[in-house]
Design a protein around this nucleic acid. Structure first.
Ligand code: SF4
Ligand code: SF4
Lengths: 131, 131
DNA sequence: CCAACTGCGACCGTTCTAGTCCGAGTTTAG
DNA sequence: CTAAACTCGGACTAGAACGGTCGCAGTTGG
């Protein structure tokens, strides 16, 4: 349960690889995948999503690729996870999708939310720079 | 991803219900399920596993049931989660089961382990008593 | 003996995840 | 202008994890 998805994991690896890069330069997803040993067709997806969220910048075209949109120290693990896995909350009854007949009288949800905030604070405390 | 399984959730609810109980008294799983609105056949399983791990005591036989084995303040959320979900670690490559071709040269595993420890410390900080 | 429990494992349907594939749009090089 | 090397987005499939149910054996108290 308390485990990163593969996507988040790969995202972190990719971001780390991206962080030592001349400004203006870019790395293609394919290149990254080969260099990091990630599944070839997974990397573009992850990167695209990160680009969508504004964590990395992308340039299209022949010599295109990705580069960090911000300083490595400004991108927290929490943010990456939120983008790639979503942030549903610690309790199973997330976003009202997962139903629970206890949801009306539940006395456990609030404490769990508090815990969740603390956990996120921990994840927020670590940035790509110090991976 | 950063989400409790249903099992852990139910476990916490059950433990909370169990905590205000006369010493020597016991609550049957069925009774708990009815009282808490949990799926009927799920509760015995969760309780049994908690008993196995020594978090609750069980008494068999006709007037049997479960009661806390320790003070509510001595049972942490982390422990419950570990018993019911296992504690694989934050990184996907858990227990050597999930393979990853990067595992030899991975420079991200250690930082993730550190993060994981911090997260567990947070979960350790909350007990059943203060759910 | 009988009734009410725990304990344990097998079982199945559903959901989530990992990974692959393909078509469309974009930019640069020649 | 054309072709190559990219990104982008969605659709799709196989597999694993999860939630929940069932049934039976063992135990205890009346
Ligand atoms: S028991 Fe409470 S916390 Fe758990 S899923 Fe139901 S409402 Fe949410
Ligand atoms: S990339 Fe590193 S942390 Fe992630 S699964 Fe592979 S070895 Fe583990």
């Amino acid at each position: 349960m308390i485990r990163l998805s593969r996507k988040s994991d790969y995202g972190l690896v990719a971001l780390k690889a991206l962080r030592g890069l001349e400004p203006g330069d870019a790395l293609s997803a394919r290149e990254l995948a080969a260099q990091l040993g990630l599944p070839g067709d997974m990397t573009p997806k992850v990167l695209a999503r990160l680009a969508q969220a504004g964590l990395v910048e992308s340039s299209m075209g022949k010599a295109g690729g990705y580069r960090l949109a911000r300083a490595a120290g400004d991108i927290s693990v929490a943010e990456v996870v939120r983008v790639l896995d979503g942030e549903p909350g610690l309790a199973p009854c997330r976003e009202g999708i997962l139903e629970c007949n206890r949801i009306e009288t539940c006395d456990i949800k609030h404490p769990l939310d508090n815990l969740h905030q603390e956990v996120m604070r921990v994840l927020q405390g670590m940035s790509i720079a110090q991976l």
